[in-house]
Design a binder for these strands. Sequence first.
DNA 1: TTGTATGCGTTATCAC
DNA 2: GTGATAACGCATACAA
Lengths: 344, 344
Amino acid sequence: MGQGPTITTIAQRAGVSIASVSRVLNGLPTRQETERKVLAAAEELGYVRNAVARSLKSRRTHQVAFAMADVGNPAYLAMLREIQPVLKAAGYRLVLHSTDAVVADEIEVLHSLGERYVDGLIMVPLRVTEAHLAMLASARAPVVIIGSVPEGTPVDNVRADSRTGVRLALDHLHALGRRRIGLVNGPLDTVPGAARGAAYREALGALGLPYDEELVEIGDFYRAEGGRAVATLLDRVPDLDALMCANDLIALGALDVLRAAGRRVPRDVAVVGMDDTDLAAASWPSLSSVSLGSAERGRAAAELLLDRLRHGEREPRLVTVPPHLVVRASTGRAGAEEPRGDAP
Amino acid sequence: MGQGPTITTIAQRAGVSIASVSRVLNGLPTRQETERKVLAAAEELGYVRNAVARSLKSRRTHQVAFAMADVGNPAYLAMLREIQPVLKAAGYRLVLHSTDAVVADEIEVLHSLGERYVDGLIMVPLRVTEAHLAMLASARAPVVIIGSVPEGTPVDNVRADSRTGVRLALDHLHALGRRRIGLVNGPLDTVPGAARGAAYREALGALGLPYDEELVEIGDFYRAEGGRAVATLLDRVPDLDALMCANDLIALGALDVLRAAGRRVPRDVAVVGMDDTDLAAASWPSLSSVSLGSAERGRAAAELLLDRLRHGEREPRLVTVPPHLVVRASTGRAGAEEPRGDAP
DNA sequence: TTGTATGCGTTATCAC
DNA sequence: GTGATAACGCATACAA
């Protein structure tokens, strides 16, 4: 774990100048003999290029940051799984930032772009505040936002279409004959929370169903709190016959609570989740879920960023990924699920 | 997205030397007046310290790498979730490497330590080859290995105790009266595969049960292939009454296949997974699983690395995290699980 | 083709 | 306390 050889070390060993060493190492034209000596010396010394010095000179770090609220959330994880190989293939390392949904942390990540330790950033902000927009306007490196930013913001933008997504779910529930469809949402001041809340209201309207405040309950985006929200909702609206949950974790919480309350799924209450994570397929009953294309969004974001890094300035782009509904047992397609356990 | 101000820019603006700027920025003693001018100029210009130049000078990047086979694997994810905040709190960024279980990629990661873009590395190798050991012996930065390395390898080492873990599971199954206990394992040339295979054999011996080759089937560590392995095993050993699976994904595959085969879980076949991931709690029947302490191992690894980064050279340390068994419905504690769905 | 010298942005060591 | 100036390791314009 010593100091490690530099091009100076090699130059001495090979009896040439550091310039020649650098040239050989970069494949620039050199005499055979020089090349041989340099490569031999480099090999003997176990030379490895210093990425930091190289970055300082070249002004490129070959690193890209990915910032999201929480690595534990399967939706972000799905993005990460797509982003990582795309960047790796292009020769970029991935720096991971977990902001714990703290706005100040997100701002700090944007600010830190000024430190130039990455060439670009992919961010999934939970909220987009004025502070975000101000930082984005003066960002010191290319940024791709997964989420929605106002038109004119100078960043590439990848959006889900949760409006259509919620619509798909509600159409499905309506077609199954459900009329008292509750919404279990996350905080309304988050991007997904606001979008899903508005979409729910709109989709009800399109179906000719009344919007009833009582049917909406707000918690956060996690299983335990989601379950609590469902419990509250069940107390208030006993004749509920379906639940639209703002993500799969909330939906799992809903299954917990419905079971505890003796409500059968889907016979008494049909449940739809959102994000179509791995958990949806593993749960019982398996969970119908609206896929918002997390993986596709991740890939699109990575590709937009790489394009920007390769081609420099250009007009900001907007990519919208279409959603689709994955129907499983929790909305009760007959025969969709066989019994798997033999618990009483 | 322009060039961005440097200390030189600030020095000009404030009418002082770059040395003074640097001093102020680093909190070294300066005259009030100088400090004021410098800070004012820095503020106006929106100065942010260049991390690359700083790293070149200081020989510290404040970055740490975490390398594992696959971000999608919940066990690695559990480690990541613990490692990330520990590093963040200590002022380190996290660089993520996904090696797809390719040995050459792991070696490459070790090699790349020579580039000095990180101060240290936490790695979860799937196999530990001679090449690994050679690279570890000459690693250019502190390394913590999660897994097992031979004594004398100059790295900190965090181990799970899968031997005890498998023993816990088999004791449990034995206590439930199961005697034909199959093993569904991953490749034997991987660290976990080899360890779990040996532990299974040993635990059977301790219970006075014969080791029967027919009861062992090898696949990989994923759900689909795990299911296929189980199918093969069921064909070969129809009177099987329990399955020890080398991880939760395999166990989920087992549940799939058992259901399709009309075997009830746990009545006909009890199933135990390993790693105790989120999926275990979400599945149906919920999955009994041996926790090997992924989260604890992640945290221990991060803390070992930080300690090493802070205190420099010292004797390599070994930390072993004890396992525990989480009993759920798939091993049929009566009443452990209520019916949650109403599928036929 | 090769070597010398300069700069990338900081920090740190000197004299003053 | 402050200002020149020298590294850190590499790439490159320019001179030889």
